[in-house]
Amino acid sequence: MIVEASGLRKAFGSTVVLDDVDLKVEEGSVLALLGPNGAGKTTIVRILTTLSRPDRGRATIAGHDVVRESTTVRGMISLTGQYSAVDDEQTGRENLVMVGRLMHLGRRGARRRAMELLERFDLVEAKDRRVKGYSGGMRRRLDLAMSLVAAPRVIFLDEPTTGLDPASRTTMWAAITELVRAGTTVVLTTQYLEEADRLADRIVLLDRGRVAASGTADDLKAQVGGERLDLEFADPGELARAVDLLGGRGSVSGPERLVLGVASDGSADHLHRVLDDLRSAGVGVARVTSHRPTLDDVFLTLTAASRVLAPAAVPA
């Protein structure tokens, strides 16, 4: 295991942001930390990248403790944060060379490496322009390039595609896939289920500082049940009553869609039972569809479904 953490706990004042979190990442794999805002994803990344100390628990990168051997750890990892970490007033090349020098590649090594990365990230033409004139996509590419200067063994990406347009997002995904092919271990945080489903070998689902579930995307989907029934309603009142009736068995997709998802074993029997329950309570169902669970279902079901249900179940 190249990344191992056990019993991580962190509080800011009286707010507990991480509560007894365990993690394991196999070398060469991709781990996605998935969760809503405030779930503790960034705090985990900050601890693993030596930027923050855990109050309790310990974490190691390739066996080196992130607190006691922070310099060694920093030499093996890189971090691309949520905010672009580039100097606006330096050129793309100067930014890269600077990081190379600080990673102790030597003057020559740093220059050579900068040129390689400029080529690889399609920034050769812009190399001698100041970064403040770069487009958003170019900045993000430079940011990632700066993270790869010293060929890190583990690369941490904190919400790598938040705020990117679809084309830049696809480019970023391709870059990440290429990194993994070259043997780099990737730990990324994301709020996008699609991103986790697509990139990650394993997913850790976080909810309010705790691990709500973990495993492969398929494992997680299996936890939610073999099949999902989506019950669509004509008006919010019907939905609210259906939620009351089926309560713990379902999850609501969002306030804008009048859909209630219910775990099912896929049998006709179960479908009958659900519809009978609703009919005898006088709740009309507009449409029923059945599908394999998506990560959306996992997300909604496992991250405190009751909390998700509450606002949508009481329509204004």
Partner: peptide, 10 residues
């Protein structure tokens, strides 16, 4: 964001 990069360097 620069500070996180600088602080995560050896």
């Amino acid at each position: 964001g620069m500070i996180d990069r600088l602080r995560s360097l050896p």
